[in-house]
């Protein structure tokens, strides 16, 4: 999940990840958090914080 932010995953990796996330709620939350983290970093880096 971390690596999908840094490189394109192979088809097998994508499928495996999708299946796993379906049965693991902690993991799907984690994946969502990775997106939020990235958005926060962008905002922070561009000086767009209040």
């Amino acid at each position: 999940m971390s690596q999908e932010q840094d490189r394109s995953l192979t088809l097998a990796e994508r499928l495996g990840l999708r299946l796993h996330v379906l049965i693991c709620t902690g993991c799907s939350n984690y994946r969502r958090q990775m997106g939020i983290l990235r958005a926060a970093c962008r905002r922070f880096g561009s000086g767009g914080t209040p």
């Binding site: 993991c27 969502r32 939020i36 958005a39």
Partner: peptide, 9 residues
Amino acid sequence: AKPGRWADP
């Protein structure tokens, strides 16, 4: 330690 659902980021 299970990740929660972060509401309204």
